[in-house]
Design a protein around this nucleic acid. Structure first.
Length: 122
RNA sequence: UGCGUGGACAGACGAUCGCCGUCGCGGGGUAACCGGCGGCGGAGGAAAGUCCGAACACCGCAGGACACGGUGGUGGGUAACGCCCACCGGCUCUUGGUCGCGGAGCUAGGGAAAGUGCCACAGAAAACACACCGCCGACCCCCGGAAGUUCUGUGUCGUCGUGUUUCUCGCGGCGCCUCAGCUCAUUGCGGGGAGGUAAGGGUGAAAUGGUGCGGUAAGAGCGCACCGCUCGGCUGGUGACAGCCGGGGCACGGCAAACCCCACCGGGUGCAAGCGCAAGCAGUCCUCCACCGGAAGUUCGCUUUCGGGAACCAUGGUCCGUGGCAUGAGGACGGGUAGCGUGCUUGAGGUCGCCGGCAACGGCGGCCCUAGACGAAUGAUCGCCGCCCGCCGCAGGCGGGAACAGAAUUCGGCUUAUGUCCACACACGAC
RNA sequence: UGGCCCGUGGUGUAAUCGGUAACACACCUGGUUUUGGUCCAGGCAUUCCAAGUUCGAGUCUUGGCGGGCCAG
């Protein structure tokens, strides 16, 4: 599932929960769909169109292979620093570590009643 | 092998899991819609750079002049082009050398007697052709002045005559020579001037046509031959231009990718153009019917309407021209939305055959349909085969590698990046 | 998608109309000083790259590369 609307991106960025793993920079926001959604924010500074497409495809493949293993529904936005494209397995490891990190952050946040946090979108 | 030209491909096949589009099937729901199965299609030769040209769309039809920008041999191709083809001119190369009407390569290649500007350093001089050095100084003027000429004198010698018988010696005439003086000069010579020259002057990227012979005081197209230049004519060619004939001794340095002149071309903005639907919001301020004429009404203040029209506004440089002038137009500020459809892929389209053309390309006929995404799809894994590299216990095995690069309205080019393969050409004549 | 601008030593800037690439700081070498600093002398450029025009290019023309900015 893809994030397609500017508003959805703005909500994820607005939640301001992010983590950096290797060359990846991942924002996350829980949703109530029961499955995760993915979006990319990869600027032209990362490389040529070929390099950007290669990175996006490998990340998308990594997401596809492990989307059912990810704990609950999150809207993810993945940004990337300039780097040589890694292998699929490396991206899978990095993405998994990033999702576990943001999951930890969100569970902490939601269990504190004072910190209401941003409302969850459906 | 190298260089050049032209062309082809962009690993192949299968399985599984996905993504985008489209078609079909059936399911749930009143509907909007939701999820499912199957078939088919899914990056490029450069999709890139955005350097040109167009299509298409809109902008108060786009007409003229100027400005601005672009192009620049000729002919053709094309929808068009700054692109392509052929040809012309120029330059370079062509086995050791020279030449050639042959071959190969390069060529932004209109105009320098329309005007302006620049040409550093060096060099006498850098654009008007003179000045300078040098050469000459024939003809003309001035100065010096030898040989020479005339005359006179002197001396020696020779010869003739004569005095003395002869020698010697003396006297006179003539000839030649020496020296001196004078005269005549200037034709040799030297110096100077007036003047004649542009042959020469180490430089420079470039120096007032080149080479040779004659000629001259020295020289010079001063004369001649050949080459070059230029003017005119004829012939060939659609043309750029070429060839031939004749005239002119020759006036014309280079740079226009310096300003410029000439010819031709160019309205502007760009698919986020534009059209439609849905949703949503909030409006405020400023400027503009001077004036003239006709008609109607009139409470005689004026109002309405028709036509013209200054200023103003628009026509995104300026002027003219054109258009607009009140339920309207233009401008400034503010508010809202950024969802969907369409444009959007059948097109100056590919491909095969025949015909026309040197070619670029065109005509006719048959066949084919070949991505349409929008926070933006075209992917991953495995097996096997093919290619390249390395290693090994070499009919094989193991490991690794496979370029440049990703559609965004669509075409035609150009340029740049880049892996592999194929075809053709790289030659000839004379001395 | 369209448009504009800029590339000169390590850094920041110059270079008139095309004629020897200049200045400051930094850095390096040597000297002065017991040493360091100061000071003195010297050095440090393929003008982003490649072609072209020209006798001659940082400057002019064309193509490329890199960087920055703007509009919807």
């Amino acid at each position: 599932m893809r994030l397609t609307r500017a508003g959805q991106f703005q909500l994820v960025f607005g939640a301001n929960v992010r983590t950096a793993v290797g060359p990846l920079l991942v924002w996350a926001l829980p949703n109530e769909l029961g499955h995760p959604r993915l979006g990319f924010a990869i600027s032209r500074r990362v490389g040529t169109a070929v390099a950007r497409n290669r990175i996006k495809r490998r990340l998308r493949e990594a997401f596809r292979l492990m989307q059912h293993d990810l704990s609950s529904g999150y809207d993810l936005v993945v940004s990337v620093r300039r780097h040589e494209p890694l292998t699929l397995a490396e991206y899978q490891k990095a993405l998994f570590k990033a999702v576990r990190a943001v999951d930890l952050t969100w569970s902490k946040r939601l269990h504190r009643p004072n910190d209401s946090g941003p409302e969850i979108v459906s």
